[in-house]
């Protein structure tokens, strides 16, 4: 989805605010949220569903919220949607239903022949799905070169929406900064992005 989470290249956020000697957690509740996520991720939802639940936050709330506030929102949203907790339980502050059986991911990673090899020239597809995707907006319809081959990994676009069987090779794809940003980008600078096979079309073999 073309949400505010897809920040690469956006303007207007100002300088990077660097906190010196920052603690790992600023408040105990942040650790609580982290622990709740770690104990429920992979049992009631997967990481792609989690990321998408963060992205589904209304954009003004997303930008206002601190990092662990977004996490809390996502954990709460998913536990409600998956029936692990109910709105009544949240309102009353007491559990009245036992948690459903957790799922276990036992699907083996299939052996897949990658369609592309290092050095292949590719073009990213110009897609704007309503749902989750890991092809950032700034890299759609751009020319790049395959540098590394990974996976296969589950396609996030499917895995975030109930289809957990769409395994694909994934590639580190290198783009010239000028291909992405135009002539004021550094001449030799590059951006490398991990992209799933179905995001890519072959342009040229080396």
């Amino acid at each position: 989805m073309n949400g505010v989470h897809d920040m690469g290249g956006m303007h207007g956020f100002g300088p990077v605010d660097i906190e010196r000697d920052e603690p790992v957690f600023h408040h105990r509740w942040e650790g609580v949220v982290r622990a709740m996520m770690q104990r429920t991720n992979g049992r009631y939802y997967n990481l792609d569903e989690f990321r998408h639940a963060v992205e589904r936050m209304p954009s003004d709330e997303y930008l206002r919220a601190a990092y662990y506030e977004r996490w809390l929102h996502a954990v709460e949203t998913l536990l409600l949607e998956k029936g692990v907790i109910t709105t009544t339980e949240v309102t009353d502050g007491h559990a009245t239903h036992p948690a459903p059986e957790a799922t276990r991911d036992t699907e083996p990673r299939p052996a897949l022949e990658p369609r592309f090899q290092p050095g292949d020239r590719v073009r990213t597809r110009n897609i704007h799905p309503h749902g989750h995707t890991r092809l950032p907006r700034y890299a759609r319809g751009r020319h790049g070169v395959i540098r590394k081959v990974y996976g296969p990994f589950r396609l996030p676009d499917a895995n975030a929406h109930g289809d957990h069987h769409d395994w694909q090779p994934c590639y580190a794809v290198e783009f010239a900064a000028r291909e992405l940003w135009g002539d004021d980008a550094g001449r030799a600078d590059r951006v490398c992005i991990d992209l799933w096979e179905s995001y890519l079309e072959l342009e040229d073999k080396p």
């Binding site: 609580v32 709740m36 809390l72």
Partner: peptide, 24 residues
């Protein structure tokens, strides 16, 4: 909100405060 959700998950046996302390 975080502490309220924590207590629900503890009641449901999905989390203990020892686990939170261990992770932190």
């Amino acid at each position: 909100r975080a502490l309220a959700l924590e207590s629900l998950l503890v009641e449901k046996g999905l989390l203990t405060s020892e686990e939170v302390d261990r992770i932190v």
